[in-house]
Structures are given as structure tokens and as C-alpha cells.
């Protein structure tokens, strides 16, 4: 696999009968890049896969967030995007929610970590999230780390292959929020460190070829080191 060209904002990608996809705009019949990234053409749509980005909420996205403010009828949740998410109390207490009886602060205080899904968002109003659904809710144990949202596709891999590989090699369970927050469920701190090391490698070198091999190498290499350390002791 050869190295792909990198484009910068303002660079003309193509002109003519093309559609402007992600991270591109159409200006005077030309498609131009709006972010630093790698261009890709699929059919008649041109897009740029950004090398660095930030999370913009999308409906149905799984996100991991932290409660930042508590109100009598809702929580404000930091989902690490330009917009703070709203979790309505009705979603947590059910339709019989009564602000005079149910206490939102007792249910979830500031700092509570949540696995949630985005139900509403259109830029004119803040995103609304839900914690009702399979696998959603308060996170009680595990380790949290983050990755730049532009690297999530590479971290998950084709049909989840990369994530499965990391999970198998480290014996952990990893949940990747689309907002770049990652939950690592494991008892072992060593396994957690290994996963974080692999994530950092992906973050650094996602755009370079043979990523999967390098991730395997780093995970196995660590295992050998651990073995060495154990024998030393």
C-alpha cells in the first residue's frame, strides 16, 4: 500500500460534475478540501478523511459523557463536542416523573459517567440523549481514555476487526463512543496500559500503511516484556 497524498484546506480536489462530501465544499464548480486530510472519491462524491477533527453529534451515535450540571428536570452532559447534551429526567425516571417527588441530584450527581445514545440534534438546539436501551446507562467500573474522533474508524477497523484484535490480545472489553471517549473494562491495570498504548499508536499512525501489523507487534512486544519482567523478579 503506497502512501496517500495529504491535502490542506483550500486545495482544489476536482472540478466538474462531482458532489461535495464530508470535509469539502463546492466553490465555483470546484470541490475544495476544508480540513487537513486524505481525499477519497466514491462514485461521484468526493470527501476528505480528516487527520484531526472534533466530535459533531449525529442522531443514533453511541457516546460516553460526563454529567456536568444537574437541574430539577434534566441533566447537562459533557459529550466532548461543541454542544453540551441534555438528558431529560423523563428519560431516567419514566413517564411518571414528578419533579416534586423525584430528585435528580440523588439519582445522578456531577461527574457521573454515562453511556448514552443521541436521540435529537439539529444544531439549532442542543443534542438530546437517552440512557434507555441495551448496554446504555451509568458506567460504574472500568477505565476511560480518549482518542481524536477522526481516528475512530481506524480504531474499530473493518467490521470491527481492529477492536476485536485488541480485545482478544489483551483480554479486555472495549466500548468506543463516537465522541472519542473509550471505556476499557478489565481487572488488570497492565492490560489497560497495553490497550492505551495501542490506541496511542493508532492515533499517531492511523494514516500510514500496515497499521494492523504494527498494533499486533506492539501488543505482543509488551507481552514479552511483561514475561521478562516476571522472570527477572
Amino acid at each position: 500500500m503506497s502512501e496517500k497524498p495529504i491535502v490542506v484546506p483550500g486545495e482544489i480536489l476536482t472540478s466538474g460534475y462531482y458532489r461535495a462530501g464530508e470535509n469539502t465544499i463546492k466553490l465555483d464548480n470546484s470541490i475544495i478540501a476544508t480540513k487537513v486530510g486524505i481525499p477519497q472519491t466514491k462514485g461521484n462524491t468526493v470527501r476528505v478523511i480528516a487527520l484531526k477533527s472534533f466530535y459533531v453529534p449525529k442522531i443514533h451515535d453511541l457516546v460516553i459523557g460526563i454529567v456536568s450540571e444537574v437541574y430539577y428536570n434534566m441533566w447537562k452532559v459533557n459529550i466532548f463536542s461543541p454542544y453540551v447534551a441534555v438528558l431529560p429526567a423523563v428519560d431516567v425516571f419514566g413517564r411518571r416523573f414528578d419533579p416534586t417527588k423525584d430528585n435528580t441530584l440523588k439519582k445522578m450527581g456531577i461527574g457521573t459517567v454515562l453511556k448514552a445514545r443521541i436521540t435529537l440534534f439539529d444544531r439549532t438546539q442542543d443534542p438530546v440523549i437517552t440512557i434507555r436501551g441495551e448496554g446504555l446507562g451509568i458506567i460504574e467500573k472500568g477505565f476511560i481514555t480518549s482518542v481524536n474522533p477522526s481516528k475512530i474508524a481506524k480504531l474499530i477497523g473493518k467490521k470491527g476487526s481492529m477492536l476485536q484484535k485488541i480485545e482478544q490480545l489483551t483480554d479486555t472489553k472495549i466500548t468506543v463512543g463516537q465522541n472519542g471517549i473509550i471505556l476499557i473494562e478489565t481487572q488488570s491495570i497492565r492490560a489497560k496500559d497495553k490497550v492505551i498504548k495501542a490506541i496511542r499508536l493508532i492515533e499517531r499512525e492511523a494514516h500510514l500503511p500496515d497499521l494492523a501489523d504494527r498494533v499486533t507487534e506492539i501488543l505482543k512486544e509488551d507481552g514479552e516484556n511483561e514475561h521478562e519482567k516476571a522472570t527477572d523478579q
Partner: peptide, 11 residues
Amino acid sequence: LADAGIPMRGI
């Protein structure tokens, strides 16, 4: 701005 990944028309 470009380094932060903020969409721009040009530099």
C-alpha cells in the same frame, strides 16, 4: 486553525 481541524475555505 488548520491544525485544530476547524473547517476552512483556505489558508
